[in-house]
Nucleic acid binder design. Structure first.
Length: 262
DNA sequence: TCTTTATGGTGAG
DNA sequence: TCACCCTAAAGAT
């Protein structure tokens, strides 16, 4: 159940574990037989993350993976269990075995198909090619709320339901404001907020929005999971004590503090 | 043993 | 906006 930081970590992890290895690939569930056959026996060159998408590249073939809401990977280095009935793809290379379970998408893509996927994605704050200017530009053209816009992967790639809620709180932006009405300076600041939160997410392997100093701690990493978020799924605001609002925005439950974010 | 929920996304109407 | 796809774990009964 990943937002962008998880995918970028996975790309690093999988590339480190599998690059230059000859792959043994199977599809225990049977639904990814074609992809497994194409990838089997090839040598992995690189794994790239763009937003919530992963691309596994060997010389002649690229595998596209999107985990969706339910997808997950499991890695094994020893004591590899037999695949579960739901294991879509098992990739083994070197001393690592990686199982892919329940992805929304998992198939070989050609150059055109990859291009189509990339065209649907806005700037990714975790990538060097993602820029605040591009984000602000795309934001300014959307006639939806800023809360809905942050979940739109064409506006910004990799943000999910937790990052949008937490970033809007940290940036003190009312989620129901119109995306197009957010001034450039504020959009730029929001981009920086998101990028900082997501980079910390990659570093820590979890989402921690709270500042350690608020909890009398020295590092973000020492914040307990229960204390890590400002508004997501909370009842009361940690800053003002007011009631956290929640409503479906952009098709998902959004949480915000009507008093701190106005 | 159910029912519910979840950090996502697509395509039809 | 809605129905639908994918899976596992937690909570309710």
């Amino acid at each position: 159940m990943p937002e962008g930081h998880v995918l970028h970590r996975l790309a690093r992890e999988h590339e480190k574990a599998l690059a230059d290895a000859a792959l043994t690939v199977s599809s225990p569930q049977g639904r990814a037989r074609a992809a497994a056959a194409d990838l089997d026996g090839t040598t992995l060159l690189a794994v790239e993350a763009i937003g919530k998408h992963l691309f596994y590249r060997s010389a002649a073939t690229t595998l596209h993976v999107h985990l969706g809401l339910f997808g997950r990977f499991r890695s094994y280095h020893a004591d590899v269990p037999p695949p579960r009935p739901t294991t879509r793809l098992r990739i083994q290379g070197g001393s690592t075995t990686i199982d892919l379970i329940g992805p929304t998408d998992c198939r070989i893509v050609d150059r055109d198909e990859e291009e189509t996927i990339r065209e649907r994605l806005g700037p990714d704050p975790l990538r060097a090619d993602g820029t605040a200017e591009e984000f602000a530009h795309r934001l300014s053209r959307r006639r939806i709320t800023i809360g809905a816009a942050l979940l739109d992967q064409r506006v910004i790639a990799g943000v999910g339901n937790i990052f949008r809620a937490e970033a809007l709180f940290v940036a003190a932006i009312d989620p129901l404001r119109s995306a197009a009405s957010v001034p450039l300076a504020e959009a730029t600041a929001l981009w920086e907020t998101i990028r900082t939160l997501m980079r910390e997410g990659v570093r820590l392997g979890r989402i921690v929005a709270r500042e350690p100093v608020e909890l009398g701690l020295r590092s973000r990493g020492s914040i307990r999971n229960a204390d890590a978020l400002y508004v997501y799924k909370r009842q009361t605001c940690l800053r003002c004590g007011g009631t956290i609002g929640s409503a479906a925005v952009g098709g998902r439950s959004l949480y915000w503090c009507p008093s701190c974010q106005s």
